[in-house]
Design a protein around this nucleic acid. Structure first.
Lengths: 111, 111
DNA sequence: CCTTAACTTAACCGCATGGTTAAGTATAGC
DNA sequence: GCTATACTTAACCATGCGGTTAAGTTAAGG
């Protein structure tokens, strides 16, 4: 069902590994369809720096850019995150299992 | 509830951004408590390279190392993944919403 | 003790990343 | 057509990453 290729996971996770990029995604989650300059405005870095982040995000397939006139509108494309979630899910379960085992231990431990 | 600090998410996601590191975690998910040299064995890279990966993983809190005698045993610690999951969860929802909207669109589209 | 085994640390290398400034392209508006 | 706006690209720089080989530590075993 979920296909996850290693290279895709690499790109997705490393795109998410930067706080500026996560903030950009967060903005696009709140507000759909934001121009490049509007996206860049809140950040203390130059426009070209934001451009590079946007390139990383679209290479990872996490955003889509659409040019109309001289402004470029960005929107979130969260599909690749589903693969990342699927990968994490197994370990999430493992973690839950760990907690369950701990709970059992605590419960069955003689005082 | 979930506290996620930006720096922790940075470390977690960038730890997950490498296929060798994901493979190491996968191994520890299947088999709990593996020595460093056993972990390194399947990979076509040198031991020091694996050491660096293990350092990254323990800096991110994803594994724990315990020395006994001259062997070091590694085990998975999936707790930080919960934070990563929590962060992704919102966008997962956004993605679902996108799919719902697409479904609506397809459904209501005149042929 | 000496040696081997299991890690660890150090020093180096090439390449990617995140940032900069400066120059380039293209569209909107007067 | 000129000019300002909205991006984009180029060139550069420092730092970090993933790898290497070589040397260093620590604990078993004979």
């Amino acid at each position: 069902m979920v296909k996850y290729s290693e290279a895709d996971l690499d790109r997705t996770f490393s795109a998410l590994a930067d706080p500026t990029r996560r903030a950009l995604l967060a903005r696009l989650g709140r507000e759909d369809g934001v121009s490049v300059s509007e996206l860049a405005e809140p950040f203390p870095v130059s426009l070209p720096a934001i451009m590079k982040h946007l390139n990383v995000l679209s290479d990872a397939g996490l955003i889509r850019r659409e040019k109309s006139g001289r402004t470029v509108t960005c929107r979130l494309n969260a599909a690749p995150l589903a693969d990342a979630m699927a990968w994490l899910d197994f370990y999430q379960r493992f973690w839950s299992a760990q907690l369950d085992r701990l709970a059992d231990f605590v419960e069955n431990e003689p005082t």
